[in-house]
Design a binder for these strands. Structure first.
Lengths: 183, 183
DNA sequence: CAGCATACGGAAGGGTGGTTCCGCTTGTCA
DNA sequence: TGACAAGCGGAACCACCCTTCCGTATGCTG
């Protein structure tokens, strides 16, 4: 790969990440290209479609989330506290990026491919969940699918909040986590 | 208004309600017109824009929801039970209509106008909420905004579920309602 | 340095879907 | 019943964006 091509690819990825984080997945390809200082043709040489670009960035996000959760598995301490703190950490990371909120919330444009990162994330979260249940701190009937559902709702609410809706994802999470606790 | 015009208006409203309920707010105006047995021009003579049509139907939905909640206020019985049962009733009504899920979930196309029906709905729900708190069954810090947020998440999840996602709005509501209860 | 493959920019292409417009039809009222 | 206003159908219009294409520029290799 030619040196200028590599350089341009990096500029595109950086510009796309910034633009999506700021304005969401509806950001136009032309805006990303302008931000990167290249033409749209260049964006398309590196990524066959806009979805592929979103997918590449999303996978990167999921890998980093998986790292976070796997790191939490190593830490000692109360199982419930670890679970809750991890959810909060993940949520605030996601909430800082509009596109990420939309992806987690299930925006139609987003990739649904069960990727490497998503698998790791699911596995680590399931373990965290199981530990909290074994400790008797979490309702026994909760499954990983429930956590997915709650996080899907979270993503949507956070995205809407960023878009100006009178919603509060922190209150949402507080209530949802309380609903997960054992009585 | 001419008799045929009134008849056509009713056909358009009925067709739109059915089409939106089935396929969501993305349904094209031409599909609605075909379903009503009229041309698109006729749809536009009765409603200046697609949004206006959606808005008219939405307002009707909100009025009916408000009726339901106001009726619940009259019923005697445990305050928490009444609250929870009402939320469940509302939720299953909404879940039966894709467009309604999208509106409640905050689909961008949907009207955000604070209408008559929405006001009545908000007022009645707030009263129901306050009674449950006075009875000591609901967390004291919960506000109407929290209920809105939870229902927004619900709408989104129900819409995604209808679209084929592996989500379960009933589990979601179970957990969320549990999170609202006093400990 | 010459020559070529690789890469680039951005105008043009194409699909989608809301909205408009106008010639024709149909109620309504005198 | 005749005449006119109101209503109708649906093709055409237009805006928005993703994607493609091609003439030009540039890094790399011998």
């Amino acid at each position: 790969m030619r040196a200028d091509a590599r350089r341009n690819r990096e500029k595109v990825v950086a510009a796309a990440a910034a633009a999506f984080a700021e304005s969401g997945l509806d950001t136009q390809v032309e805006d990303i290209a302008r931000r990167a200082g290249v033409g749209v043709g260049t964006v398309y040489r590196h990524f066959p479609t806009k979805d592929a670009l979103v997918g590449a960035l999303a996978e990167d996000h999921f890998e980093r989330l998986a790292d976070t959760v796997e790191a939490a598995l190593e830490e000692p301490g109360d199982a419930w506290e670890t679970f809750a703190a991890t959810i909060w950490r993940i949520a605030s990371t996601i909430a800082s990026d509009v596109a990420w909120c939309e992806i987690v919330g299930g925006h139609p444009t987003a990739i649904q491919t069960a990727s490497q990162g998503q698998h790791r994330l699911a596995a680590a979260t399931s373990t965290l969940l199981a530990r909290a249940q074994e400790a008797g701190a979490m309702r026994a009937d909760v499954t990983f699918a429930d956590i997915s559902t709650i996080m899907c709702g979270f993503g949507h609410i956070a995205a809407a909040q960023r878009a100006g809706a009178a919603l509060d994802w922190e209150r949402y999470l507080t209530i949802a986590l309380d609903g997960l606790r054992a009585r």
